[in-house]
């Protein structure tokens, strides 16, 4: 099933017939078997699927962290596959934001310094209004001087979100951002991600296996066995859960 449905100018990222194979010969494992996905600007997309379905692999390929075996991936209108390390570094620095499951903040920097890090790496100055807006959105204005070890998990992840937002990237990739958080802190982060899409116009792609998390997205793309198998727009947690069950049964039948 194809999830392609928009024109190029509205796309933040795109995968065209992407295959990803690990290993060689008999030990070959195909993680992606011809995936086509369009990710629209200003949308919060969740990618769902059971473990091993290829959802994380796709995200890694889209972000230029992993290479594709076949097919093409684009961020905005730039072809990611075939880029040199230098180009990839620039791409990640200027066009992509990341939110990791394990936060991955630098322990020796304060929250504010962590937030500003991508700009510092790029040698850019933050625009004060934007920075103020981002900080206000994450709700950490009284915590800016703290080190990550002095923050709770939810606060750390919100710092990580702000770090991804601050450089106004083309697209933010979030890999199980609530995987390490309790449900309350998780809900806070998800609400914040949704707000940043709605109020700041950010594009976010989130990989998750939690139906509740996926329900915060504008659109959910379902993965199974290296394919896109379905998608829902304006999802509710129940709808996502139903779809998951359906895919599960389909797979078992197949």
């Amino acid at each position: 099933m194809s999830a392609t449905s928009s024109t190029d100018t509205e796309l933040a990222a795109r995968a065209v017939n992407v295959h990803k194979v690990y290993g060689t010969g008999d030990a070959q494992v195909a993680a992606l078997r011809g995936v086509d996905v369009d990710l629209r600007r200003g949308q919060f997309t969740a990618i769902m699927g059971p473990s091993g379905s290829g959802k994380s692999t796709l995200m890694h390929c889209l972000a230029g962290l992993d290479t594709v075996s076949e097919g093409d991936v684009y961020v905005a209108d730039m072809k990611v596959n075939g880029m040199s390390d230098k180009e990839l570094t620039a791409l990640r620095r200027d066009r992509i934001g990341f939110i990791f499951q394990q936060f991955n903040l630098l322990p020796m920097l304060t929250a504010e310094e962590n937030i500003l890090l991508p700009l510092a790496i790029a040698g850019r100055k933050p625009s004060p209004e934007w920075l103020a807006k981002v900080i206000e959105t994450v709700g950490l204005s009284d915590r800016l001087g703290h080190r990550p070890t002095e923050l709770s998990g939810g606060q750390q992840q919100r710092v990580a979100c702000a770090r991804a937002l601050v450089s106004q990237p083309e697209v933010i990739f979030a890999d199980e951002p609530t995987g390490n958080l309790d449900s309350r802190a998780g809900a806070e982060v998800l609400k914040f991600l949704r707000d940043s899409v709605r109020t700041l116009g950010q594009t976010i792609v989130m990989v998750t296996h939690d139906p509740n998390a996926a329900s915060y997205a504008d659109r959910v793309v379902f993965f199974a066995d290296g394919h896109v198998v379905s998608e829902i727009t304006e999802p509710t947690a129940d709808a996502v859960l139903d779809m998951m069950k359906k895919i599960d049964t389909l797979e078992k039948v197949a």
Partner: peptide, 16 residues
């Protein structure tokens, strides 16, 4: 390692 990975992921170049 993880930290370096994160730094590289958010755009720190090899030279840097």
């Amino acid at each position: 390692t993880k930290e370096l990975g994160a730094l590289r992921a958010i755009g720190l170049g090899r030279g840097q």
